[in-house]
């Protein structure tokens, strides 16, 4: 198969567009993992819940997913805060495996309750720009992907400003760097854990919401993002949200070009092999522990 430059560029672009979504999901996961030291298995399920909320607000109120994201963010922040308060706070000192098992149980719970109520029907939001696209230089830009991409970039910038400028953001990063030291200087780490889990959950839910205009909603929708987020988090160095933002783009592009150059079915296994290679050969990831130490 000959590789055409325009088609290759097109697939790289597709990778960047979807990669920005991976970035957002992974930034949430890496904040939780880096700050609370909890591998949050439920991240994908919470993202899926965000997608459903976007779908239902569109279905009943006709609200565009980009607008409902403004409501979804605080809602899922509160949900994440509550999950931490009632579930995770009790096991913050337990073994990492216990924490992994509890979030695994939470995933099973959420997914199957959703499956029970809404079945595995595939649902899609149609917006005014759903079938809109632009041509430029032989390339095709379809509106849902482009708009979701810019929304994700905005969220990424907002996250960066929040974590570097606000006092809560600074406290989150301080706790991630050194829990004991943060406590010593008067940071209430328990409250920070709640904030972190709320923020991470809200990021996943918003990322889910803004892609509902092109990504079908069903109870399994979050799974692929969860696994890829693990890859991105390890690639971008655990706890490093900037690493996750960059890593998401890298994985997105690697995935889409594999699909173009080689085989679409190879996209996911390849990402997993990358994950294992990083874990084994460079566990610090691409960007070291800049945020943690």
């Amino acid at each position: 198969m000959a590789i055409e430059p325009t088609a290759l560029i097109q697939s790289i672009l597709a990778g960047v567009f979807v990669g920005a979504i991976y970035s957002l999901v992974s930034a949430g996961l890496t904040l939780i993992w880096g700050t609370m030291r909890i591998v949050n298995f439920a991240h994908g399920a919470l993202m899926m819940l965000g997608m459903y909320m976007a779908y239902w607000t569109w279905y009943f109120l006709g609200l565009d997913p980009l607008l409902s994201a403004l409501v979804i963010f605080p809602t899922f922040f509160a949900l994440g805060y509550a999950i931490d308060k009632f579930l995770l706070r009790r096991i913050i000192q337990a073994s990492s495996v216990a924490q992994l098992l509890i979030t695994f149980g939470l995933t099973l719970f959420i997914q199957n309750v959703v499956l029970y109520f809404w079945r595995s029907d595939i649902r899609l939001v149609t917006t005014s720009y759903s079938s809109l696209y632009w041509h430029a230089g032989g390339l095709v830009f379809d509106a849902p992907h482009v708009i979701a991409f810019f929304a994700a970039i905005l969220c990424g910038i907002g996250l960066h400003l929040f974590l570097t400028r606000s006092s809560i953001g600074l406290a989150i990063r301080a706790t991630a760097q050194d829990r004991e030291a943060a406590q010593t200087v008067g940071i209430e780490t328990k409250r920070i854990f709640g904030m972190t889990f709320g923020l991470g959950t809200a990021l996943a839910a918003v990322a889910g919401a803004i892609i509902t205009s092109y990504y079908p909603v069903n109870p399994d929708s979050g799974n692929q993002f969860l696994f890829l987020a693990f890859v991105v988090v390890v690639l971008g160095s655990l706890g490093n949200y900037l690493g996750a933002l960059v890593g998401g783009l890298i994985i997105g592009v690697v995935q889409s070009t594999t699909g173009y150059v080689y085989l679409a079915q190879a996209e996911l296994p390849l990402a997993f092999v990358v994950f294992l290679a990083i874990l084994i050969f460079m566990p610090e990831g691409l960007f070291g522990k800049r945020l943690r130490r």
Partner: peptide, 14 residues
């Protein structure tokens, strides 16, 4: 049933 299994997982850990 699977949802309850998830809850069992959580309760074991807790």
């Amino acid at each position: 049933q699977l949802a309850i299994r998830g809850a069992i997982f959580m309760m074991i850990v807790l």
